[in-house]
């Protein structure tokens, strides 16, 4: 089992590619990998309930959803409006995860 930190920065405003990347995350989880998908910048809007069904799949398959608290506040999205299971994180959490030797990181 591999450990992945996937980072989505565009989100639904960036178009279909963001949905495909979230699908990639779900696929990795489906294959038994340890997946954390971190939404940052405009990507945080993907965590709004109903915005990206792929995230529901990811969570159902045991993946984790991290949402950048700074980006979320910047974009005026209320944490109460996020999909259940989304966890607000700070950049230090991402740094710590990234520095873990076993973690593979992919930025989109």
């Amino acid at each position: 089992m591999n450990e992945y930190l996937l980072i989505e920065s565009g989100g639904p405003p960036a178009g279909p590619a963001s949905h495909r990347f979230a699908d990639d995350a779900a696929q990795l989880a489906r294959e038994g990998e340890d997946v954390a998908l971190f939404l940052v910048e405009n990507g945080v809007t993907g965590a709004v309930r109903g915005a990206m069904p792929e995230l529901d799949a990811l969570l159902w398959l045991g993946g984790r959803l991290w949402v950048d608290a700074f980006s979320l506040r910047q974009r005026a999205v209320d944490a109460e409006d996020l999909v259940p299971g989304a966890r607000l994180v700070e950049m230090r959490d991402v740094a710590r995860k990234l520095l873990s030797p076993a973690v593979r990181v992919v930025w989109h």
């Binding site: 700070e90 950049m91 230090r92 740094a95």
Partner: peptide, 12 residues
């Protein structure tokens, strides 16, 4: 994001 991440990594 790059500057935020760099700062966070340096903090660690």
């Amino acid at each position: 994001s790059a500057l935020r991440l760099a700062q966070a990594l340096l903090d660690e």
